[in-house]
């Protein structure tokens, strides 16, 4: 059964949140959703770019009180 995992990368700067997401991806199963919490605005742009480049699913991004919630699904 697919899991929803939260990766708390608040306070880290580029490319820290992306690298934490990728480390989390390595430990996840296909179909799992990963939600990255980031205070780094650049990562909110970079993570979707990386997701599209490598072929995973980008599910959305929203900002709440200065924290970006970027949700992706491992597709392969």
């Amino acid at each position: 059964m697919a899991e929803h995992k939260v990766i708390d990368a608040r306070g880290s700067f580029c490319p820290g949140p992306l690298m934490e997401l990728i480390a989390g991806m390595k430990l996840s199963q296909v179909g799992d959703e990963l939600e990255v919490l980031s205070t780094d605005k650049g990562s909110a742009n970079d993570i979707p770019e990386w997701i599209h480049k490598v072929g995973h699913d980008f599910l959305g991004a929203r900002e709440e009180a200065g924290v970006w919630h970027i949700t992706v699904r491992k597709a392969k």
């Binding site: 880290s12 700067f13 490319p15 820290g16 690298m19 480390a23 390595k26």
Partner: peptide, 17 residues
């Protein structure tokens, strides 16, 4: 001073990931 990832950590992640 900020919480930027250490360069050695990033190099090691380049290798491992």
């Amino acid at each position: 001073a900020k919480r930027a990832p250490a360069f050695k950590t990033l190099f090691e992640q380049a290798v491992e990931l």
